[in-house]
């Protein structure tokens, strides 16, 4: 049985940091294909110098992040059959980061932010290999380990997408789940993650409008399971005098 073929219209942003524009192109599409397949066909047949970052084509490497019809998405996980017949599909680079060329952006902001998060600190009296944890204690952190670092959450977050100046003081949702992962980790002993989440990583800048959760291809409930719990933990140590006092008297678990 032969695959059904049809022609589709694309508008692809082409350019660099100095200038650029959307260019129209028509290309063949086969049944079952995804947007990344179509971009590769454009590259093979009409725009041999089109720059696009990709790797696994399975939604697990996080490389092919771009904006498709204005929405941050993985091109390899966006099926062509979700578009209307005859619809023009607009493809642009991520609009929160500096563009390098065509669909490729400079996402190094995220790696700098990653380095600012203090790493896991295990108990001093245990050597690697001696760590023992119960599943019930690590399952919250495990949800956040599903992150593939596609940075779609960072791209859609209006705190930095719409305000370049906030990049200095705001880590972004991807790193709030990292902080939450560590703060909820049963064996992490670093005691000031809550305070620094607020004072150094900009948790208070987040106004929980949940766009990060909406675009996450791994369906991590970033806002409900990481950001809001971290905001509540920050309240425990910074804005709740009763709970703070209680923690001084009875060393209540979790409030450090």
């Amino acid at each position: 049985m032969s695959a059904i073929k049809k022609m589709v219209k694309l508008r692809i942003w082409r350019g660099d940091a100095k200038d650029g524009a959307l260019q129209d192109v028509e290309v063949e599409a086969n049944e079952g294909e995804v947007v990344l397949d179509i971009i590769h066909r454009v590259q093979a047949t009409q725009m041999s110098d089109l720059a696009v970052r990709w790797n696994c084509k399975a939604g697990k490497c996080g490389s092919c992040s771009m904006e498709i019809n204005g929405k941050p998405r993985l091109a390899c996980m966006t099926r062509m059959n979700m578009f209307e017949e005859g619809e023009t599909i607009t493809v642009t680079p991520l609009r929160a980061f500096p563009v390098i060329r065509d669909l490729v952006t400079d996402v190094s902001f995220n790696y700098k932010k990653a380095m600012e998060i203090p790493a896991f600190e295990g108990p001093k009296d245990l050597k690697p290999g001696e760590y023992r944890m119960q599943q019930v204690d690590v399952e919250r952190s495990q949800e956040f380990r599903k992150c593939i670092e596609c940075f779609l959450c960072q791209d859609t977050c209006h705190v930095i997408r719409d305000h370049e100046e906030n990049k200095k003081s705001f880590a972004g949702p991807r790193f709030f789940i990292r902080i939450a992962e560590l703060d909820m980790h049963p064996l992490d002993t670093l005691r000031n993650r809550k305070q620094t989440a607020q004072t150094e990583h900009g948790l208070g800048m987040c106004n929980i409008t949940k766009c990060c959760t909406e675009v996450c291809p791994e369906h991590i409930r970033i806002t409900d399971n990481a950001i809001i719990p971290m905001k509540e933990r920050v309240v425990d140590v910074k804005y709740d005098p009763i709970r703070w006092l209680g923690s001084k008297i009875s060393k209540r678990e979790g409030i450090v």
């Binding site: 942003w13 350019g15 940091a17 200038d19 650029g20 524009a21 959307l22 642009t92 680079p93 609009r95 929160a96 980061f97 500096p98 563009v99 952006t105 997408r161 719409d162 305000h163 370049e164 100046e165």
Partner: peptide, 11 residues
């Protein structure tokens, strides 16, 4: 600023 910053894709 924002999506119209000088380093971002000109859209």
């Amino acid at each position: 600023s924002g999506v119209f910053s000088s380093t971002r894709a000109k859209i």
